[in-house]
Design a protein around this nucleic acid. Structure first.
Length: 257
DNA sequence: GCGACAG
DNA sequence: ATCTTGTCGC
């Protein structure tokens, strides 16, 4: 089970906006955007074949569903595509969604769900940004640092930063770097993540938008993108995220309908 | 004042 | 995120 390593950096919704931003700068200073993994990222897949001998790493997907003022946080842990554990927690939400401060709304509920885990993931995928954040401390980075676990941010749209090329109609498998600009604390030009086209229609009129992948903690930008691509299997979202998404919806339906 | 931004 | 019918394309 993962345990809180930095209680001083937990997302406190009662902080003022200024204090939240100050905490994010502190988190960014504690975060590592370099690989520090317990497994070989080049051998990761969501299928059975992987590193011979020691077996694939435990990968967790985290996602949430909402119902009134409550958040249902779900975590699904799998190894080589096989589900190892599923947990969820229902938590009261105390503050609204504010761009740039997402972890202060959803971080607490996620911590609640993590407390239910009995296994310790080698990698955690979050729904949102990591380093692609004004102060380089998005949800994935915040949670990664609090638990000191390798993490990756998987977002469906870009919060900030500038793509080095167009991200429209990219072919499947394509990857476009996202660089820090004046809106980001990192030095301009620093690659803080990538647009990753995990899926695309072969032909036709419509096109699928790429995923926005960024390092959370203990993973570099290239590896984060490669891991998400390796964990994807025919759908836009990587499998760990899809499983968490489905489980969150399932848990939610237990409460309403 | 304008712009604008994860879930 | 959530609210929702239809509609296009494989």
């Amino acid at each position: 089970m993962l345990s809180v390593q930095r209680p001083d950096l937990l997302p406190d919704p009662a902080l003022s906006r200024e204090e939240m931003e100050a905490l994010q700068r502190e988190i960014a200073a504690e975060a590592s955007f370099e690989n520090d993994l317990s497994f070989d990222p080049a051998a990761v897949t969501d299928g059975p074949l992987s590193t011979p001998g020691e077996g694939p790493p435990l990968v967790a997907g985290v996602d949430q569903a909402f119902l009134d003022d409550r958040a249902i946080s779900a975590i699904v842990v799998s190894r080589g595509g096989e589900i190892v554990e599923r947990v969820y927690a229902v938590s009261e939400l105390s503050i609204p969604y504010i761009p740039g401060l997402l972890s202060f709304r959803e971080g607490g509920p996620i911590v609640d769900a993590v407390a239910e885990l009995t296994v310790e993931p080698d990698l955690v995928l979050f729904d949102g940004s990591g380093r692609i954040h004004f102060r380089e401390a998005g949800l994935a980075t915040h949670m990664g640092v609090v638990f000191d676990v390798p993490s990756v941010g998987v977002a469906k749209s870009l919060l900030c930063g500038t793509p080095t090329d167009t991200t429209d109609n990219l072919p499947e498998g394509a990857r476009v770097p996202i660089e820090a600009d004046a809106d980001v604390t990192a030095a301009a030009g620093t690659v803080i993540g990538h647009a990753v086209q995990t899926r695309q229609y072969d032909s036709g009129n419509r096109s699928i938008n790429p995923l926005i992948v960024s390092p959370g903690h203990r993973v570099d930008a290239d590896t984060a993108a490669a891991l998400v691509a390796a964990l994807t299997d025919g759908y836009k979202l990587p499998e760990p995220t899809r499983r968490a998404d489905a489980y969150a919806e399932e848990a939610k339906s237990l409460f309403d309908g």
